[in-house]
Design a protein around this nucleic acid. Sequence first.
DNA 1: CCCAAGACCTGGCGGC
DNA 2: TGCCGCCAGGTCTTGG
Length: 272
Amino acid sequence: MPELPEVETTLRGISPAVVGATITGFEVRNTALRWPVPVGQLQKLTGQTVSKAERRAKYLLLHTAAGTILLHLGMSGSLRILQTGQVAGKHDHLDIEFDGQQLVRLNDPRRFGCCLLIQSPVSEHKLLSNLGPEPLTEDFNAHYLFSRSRGRRVTIKSLIMDSTIVVGVGNIYASESLFLAGIRPTLAAKRLSRKRHHLLADAIKHVLQKAIKAGGTSLSDFSGTDGKPGYFSQQLHVYGRSGEPCSTCMTTIQSKVIAQRNTYFCPVCQRF
DNA sequence: CCCAAGACCTGGCGGC
DNA sequence: TGCCGCCAGGTCTTGG
């Protein structure tokens, strides 16, 4: 579920409920997420008010004067806003209660997500300190991408999925961006021309922006169904479409495993 | 430093 | 139906 657009949508969904609200408790039913949930540390935030909620890469950050809660949704996580007293279901691992009346509930079947507390400067935290720029900012552009691909033998697909290069490009949007830019995913990063870096940087921005709009629409009520990608799949050109005709040239879409992840492309539209 | 592969975990699906 | 193997939107960690 959580590609960058859904994390962004999640942020927008929880912000009205949590920013300015006071934490009145935590209920942790399962501490065994990707890293152990530090229950004792979190409890000390009780009584603190959330001053700001933001997204960095696919991390959600809830700031208080006494520390910052860092959440990640992994492959299968989601957050919901509920009234207190709602019975927890399977994989509802933890709640953060606000003002004694609402809670943010984390559900994550695969438990690749996490909930940690940061008390040092946030940008210096190990999980955040080596992250590349946000794709939708001006810091991420053709010139930057070109400079970071010099000497790199990895495929261009692996490069754009490397969070130290640029954050937020997951497996779906890597394939989609490369299709839009007309670039073969298997091409060595160092062999990409300047012109194609330009096309690629623009494609990444375009695809993510469009997806955020789609995600925002589909999840606007927020407690809605646990989202399968129904609303995305209409807009996907190549991802998950091997064997189907390319929407541009009707050639059969192919798939290939790159760095252990399935990758989709049109062999005609993406010649290089 | 760079790169590839392994690890974590559950659920849904197709095939027999 | 039931069981089995395979696959899945992430990313940190390890080993060469």
